[in-house]
Write a protein that binds this DNA or RNA. Structure first.
Lengths: 213, 213
DNA sequence: CGTTCTATTGAACTGAGTCAACAGATGTGG
DNA sequence: CCACATCTGTTGACTCAGTTCAATAGAACG
């Protein structure tokens, strides 16, 4: 990416803060914009005609959201937390990709990472028990938490960006099963649940031992 | 990709036929080669320490197998049918990528396609019933079958490249459940099973209606 | 301080798993 | 070419993890 490209991107990109629930990309209408996530969390989900839903990916800063080279994506992208985005028009991005091998290289590397994430999740959905799924999810969030307080006395603490319903949609479970497994992990002293969204992990290795891998 | 690169690739690549079960890539040892699948089917799988296994992708010709820019892949790649491969050393591929934006572009496009496939499978594993999973799998194989006989009298016929155990590993089910669902789909006249591996679909739309999407 | 989300808990149900027996295929050597 | 062994796939009976339905309890918000 050269200097003139960078300046054009800065000029034509649009920085914005979006609230939870805001749709960035819908399976129905063709993709018109791309975004970089600067802060917050975005969920990617798929839905069956009868309403069953599956979250197929979570994007954290500084991930890129969008599907280059394809008019529609069959995916819905939605902000799950309050999110800071840098948005730019489709044509600009695609022209810049064609002009800048370095940009395409970066996007390729991110696609490979997303592919690894998706395949990890496939193993989770295909073969893990409910308890292992919930532990796997908690560990993933802990690792992505910017200010997960380090290992002082009380272990690591972090905030869950997703509701129970969203965790269920991510793990291929029901709300009730997620809730019950959290309660059981609490009973086994693997986690402490402080005010619903706030989780404390006294010993990370104990949690890792619950993930199945 | 320019002429000298192409000739170097041709000279240094190695064409070979491998039998079912042959491992192309292992989670343990670092990746030393990359391959193009010229014919046949390759499975990508992940395993938990206790032996539970999940197939996270199937590669058909002319897919590329390998994970550029990462010494190890955490994936195992194995031929499921007799397969024709074009193999070349890691360093050659990575040098060629760095020299040829067009090559990287092609690989990027394939990665995006694999990502779409992985996410489709996530929806299947997270939210579909056993019957829907089996129907989804059959439809996928039918669409990838090179000589799936067209719609004459008896509908479409094709060969399953996977054993029941592999189908189960792909769909997050057990062998028994796969077998039972095939029997039930046969009972509903959605498919006919001719000699275990050979499937006939009288009416493709009937099968599509069983996939859940 | 009521209304409305969001989350927890309980009881009953069920789809898929487990365990076990059997049946077809495929293959091998006498 | 046939008996035997070995895979691969099917079927049945039973179990159980996770779902469903329903009631309750906290949080958040005006």
């Amino acid at each position: 990416m050269n200097a003139s490209q960078l300046s054009e991107l800065t000029r034509r990109s649009h920085r914005q803060v979006v609230e939870p629930g805001k749709t960035l990309l819908d399976a129905e209408q063709p993709t018109s914009t791309y975004s970089n996530v600067l802060a917050g969390v975005v969920k990617l989900s798929k839905m069956l005609p009868d309403g069953r839903q599956q979250i197929v990916g979570l994007q954290f800063a500084p991930d890129f959201v969008g599907r280059p080279f394809s008019p529609e994506s069959s995916l819905k992208a939605e902000a799950v937390t309050s999110t800071v985005l840098c948005t730019f028009p489709r044509q600009l991005l695609e022209r810049m990709i064609s002009e800048s091998p370095e940009l395409e290289h970066k996007l390729y590397l991110q696609a490979l990472d997303e592919l690894d994430d998706a395949r990890d999740l496939l193993l989770t959905l295909g073969r893990k028990t409910a308890r292992e799924r919930v532990a796997t999810f908690l560990l993933m969030i802990a690792r992505h938490s910017p200010h997960a307080e380090g290992s002082e006395d009380g272990g690591t603490g972090f905030e869950l960006p997703l509701t129970r319903a969203e965790i269920a949609d991510f793990l291929g479970l029901t709300i009730e099963t997620v809730s019950r497994q959290l309660t059981k992990l609490k009973g086994s002293d693997v986690i402490r649940v402080e005010q619903n969204r706030r989780i404390r992990v006294p010993d990370m290795e104990l949690l890792e031992a619950e993930t199945g891998d």
